[in-house]
Amino acid sequence: MTSILEVCNLKKAFGGLAVTNNVSLSLNPGDRVALIGPNGAGKTTFVNLVTGNLRPDSGMVRLGGETITGLNPMRRVRKGLVRSFQVTRLFQDMTPAEHVALAILQRDGRSTQMLGHFSHMPDVTAETGELLSKLGLHDFASSKVSRIAYGQQRLLEIAIALALRPKVLLLDEPAAGVPQSDTGRIEQALAELPADLAVLMIEHDMDLVFRFARRVIVLAAGEIIFDGSPAEVTKDARVREAYLGSYAYVSSVA
């Protein structure tokens, strides 16, 4: 299988401190990968390097075989590299239907159209309705975002990302801040993501990681220290050390 996203020897340093050090990984269509690591491991920097919000000092990012290292975030999105945000970034005065419709119109290059209203575009309303139903948001399609629950806002984030028809989806802690009672719906949404989509999820919640991911990558101090199956990750000595520090030795001695 050819990889859809390829990251080669990515490096980024802030004032001499290497925050991303020689990171390489590749994602295939249909991959479900979780990126984990202790605080300060450089996960956010890595995501920003991939999405183009930061420029790497060296290294390369390829999407579908095409080098995108020099492209700005906007162009990367248009090529199919889409991200969601850890803290929802939604328009408080707009409805979920408007959010999704805007994303669909943008994807089709129609968002700068100056005439007409999306509700009079049957193809757009149909696709919007379908996406919102799929994520269980249909009932709230016409309420303002400021009136819907946070869990539903998280689902809307996913809906927007899907409306852009991504090839690679970077999910930044999709369940962050959601009350325990609502995480089930989000997990269901994650389980129902399109089968050929490559997903890289950054997550702290290990339960979610084990249920969702078929592959886990551990980042510590800017380097990949583990890349393998969820079953092996807890047994790995370097991972234990990264998370537990010297306690790992204490417990192994004891």
């Binding site: 975030p73 906007m74 999105v77 945000f85 939604l90 943008q106 994807r107 968002s111 927007i160 852009l164």
Partner: peptide, 11 residues
Amino acid sequence: EDPIRIRAMGA
């Protein structure tokens, strides 16, 4: 409301 969100939509 949020230019960053708009950029993340590719606009």
